[in-house]
């Protein structure tokens, strides 16, 4: 890599503060930093670390597939450590380049990479979604609940399948309507289409809808509030968007995992790290905004389900293990 040197000494170091050595770094997936969802949650975690420690970190926004490798190599070259990246799409590239930089620790969120210097953080989205399904089935008066996904990819089926299992476990007669916003990346950012899908589901009788659709979900929550039905948010706590009309949010602690990785610094532990209900990696958001919507029996049902999942009495099927869902 001697060829990198002119480039690095020529421009990069002149742009970056000298203290960059051993600073952590965060790379956002192509969606960009402010996607109101996944990347933004990672950004919040990094900012929290910055506010608490006064440290600095390097953040990168990539623009193309080929830049994944470019960004990782260049960060490793300037000794950023650890390097945290959001999104399963980095998996293939990281697996290839991690052995080239044994001194650097990498943290990848949402997929597993089996290398000695990589920490893989995955979330048990199906468990949080299961609880959301339990709540939805209890809150529904019509016996029909809806699910609106973003882009039709396996990760979102994992949400959908967990949700459906929670609904069916609570009310075997309940019907789950399922719609996806689209087949291209634009589906993550189409609030208007999200709203249309909500109206379509309402016309079929749905009175609770769960959105796992990135920024499209904002439109789902808006329309549900306007039409007077309940909605369920995702990734971040979205209860405050429409107080009293968002039943709950399935929170994925992406911010927490970035924060912990930054805090551990070069000592970050390689290996698999599962963020599930038991570890608090996924949870339902309960706050003053949805307090009036949650009855005592709902709280009891969620607590019972939580304990059963944590103890292993209930096994929530993970769609991504075999690409099938037992309840559909």
């Amino acid at each position: 890599m001697s060829l990198m040197k002119p480039l690095l000494t020529g421009t990069l170091l002149s742009l970056l503060p000298v203290s960059v050595l051993a600073d952590p770094a965060l790379i956002f997936d192509i969606g960009g930093k402010f996607d109101k969802s996944f990347n933004e949650s990672a950004y919040r975690g990094a900012e929290r670390w910055k506010a608490e420690t006064g440290g600095s970190y390097k953040e990168l926004d990539i623009r193309s597939e080929a830049q994944r490798e470019d960004a990782l190599r260049q960060l490793a070259q300037i000794s950023a450590n650890p390097i945290v990246m959001t999104g399963f799409a980095f998996g293939e590239v990281l697996n290839k380049i991690a052995p080239d930089y044994p001194q650097t620790k990498f943290v990848i969120i949402d997929t597993t990479v089996d290398q000695p210097n990589v920490q893989s953080v995955t979330f048990a989205e199906q468990e949080g979604s299961y609880l959301a399904g339990v709540l939805a089935a209890r809150a529904s008066k019509s016996g029909t609940v809806g699910f609106i996904g973003g882009m039709d990819v396996p990760l979102i089926h994992k949400f959908e399948c967990g949700y459906a299992q929670g609904v069916k476990a609570t009310d075997p007669e309940a019907e789950v309507l399922i719609n996806y916003t689209g087949t291209t990346a634009a589906a993550w950012n189409d609030p208007v289409k999200g709203g249309e899908l909500v109206r379509a589901q309402i016309s079929k009788g749905a009175d609770v809808v769960y959105a796992a659709a990135g920024a499209t979900g904002i439109g789902v929550l808006d329309t549900a509030a306007k039409e007077g039905i309940l909605s369920i948010g995702v990734d971040s706590n979205q209860n405050h968007l429409h107080p009293g009309q968002v039943l709950t949010s399935v929170v994925k602690a992406v911010d927490e995992s970035v924060y912990l990785a930054f805090k551990a610094g070069v000592e970050v532990e390689p290996g698999m790290k599962l963020m599930d209900l038991a570890s608090g990696g996924v949870s339902l958001a309960m706050d003053e905004n949805n307090r009036d919507l949650i009855t005592e029996e709902m709280t009891a049902a969620v607590e019972a389900a939580t304990q059963a999942i944590v103890s292993g009495a209930i096994q929530v099927h993970d769609y991504s293990t075999d690409d099938t869902c037992p309840v559909e």
Partner: peptide
Amino acid sequence: GQLALWTSIPR
């Protein structure tokens, strides 16, 4: 791409 990576100029 390098601008986006290494400066604060928005992409």
